[in-house]
Amino acid sequence: MISFLAKRIMQAVAVVLATASMVFFAVFIIGDPAQLLYSQNASAAEVEAARRYLGLDLPLYQQYFNFMGGLLHGDLGRSFVYGKPALGVILQRLPATLELAFASVVLAVVVGLPLGLYCGLNPRTIRSRLIMAVSALGVSLPTFWIGIIIMLAFAVNLRLLPTGGRGNTLTVLGVPWSFLTIDGLRHLLLPAASLALWQASLILRLTRAGTEEVLRQDYVRFARAKGIAPGRILWVHVLKNVLAPVVTMVGLSLGGTIAFSIVTESIFSWPGAGKLLIDSIYAFDRPIVVAYLMLAVTIFVLINTFVDLIYAAIDPRVTLGAADSGS
């Protein structure tokens, strides 16, 4: 266990450092941000001063070492637009994104798991076919289109819910949260639902397929023959074996959710890190883009490691050594 963890942490650090190098060379070589940031009217001397101020006049290897050195100290440069440390600007916005992502994952599990079980247990009914058809839509439609449709239906036409923003927030531990107030929840519902649809559809399909497969297994037949109550068979014998791939799916989709929240946040004006990323791309605010990327890589690596650990915990057949070498 400990050697597995140590190995994974080493790998994670290597991945983050490798990504940092790639990001550095990709982002910093392609263009000179000083020319993009300053107006056409700026004199050559002004642009030169700006480049010196941003450290862009240094030779490339020195810029690289400065960048990597800063990274180790958690310093990812200053935002060109906000004039504050880039990491700080993002971290300030991150709770809103995480709130949205978690809300959508919870919504997806709460909707997807029971519906998947239902479809797996009653595959032939009209209701489960209808559910499967909707989930086919949910898997294939682009998230932004789902978001627009949901917004058009519930916010513009029916006027039931607000179209954007976070609404009233309650500050706990120095961070404002929307899910603690009624108004905040109303603002959270639509973006979370539009993010949740594809995950719910995936979870549903995975649960259904798993349930159908497990029901055919000998041990379920044996449990039935032994006279174990159907409820116990479902909740203990079936669910336990269905759950392992679903947990992986949920864990991995958390990463996808954070990525897709970039789109959803832009549609619903949710002031999270994703919207910040898009705004920063438009504003050529590279330190923010780089910092967002580094943070995203770190989060994804953490999630992947965590998923492996949970997977090993719920499925006794998986040993951690094997999970590590599989590719």
Binding site: A18, A26, A296
Partner: peptide, 25 residues
Amino acid sequence: TLLMRLVDFQLGFPPVLLALVILAV
């Protein structure tokens, strides 16, 4: 091993994010 590590590494990222970053740059 090297090629598949690269593949694993890349599959750990959602395609949206990757394409978005490339186009942002």
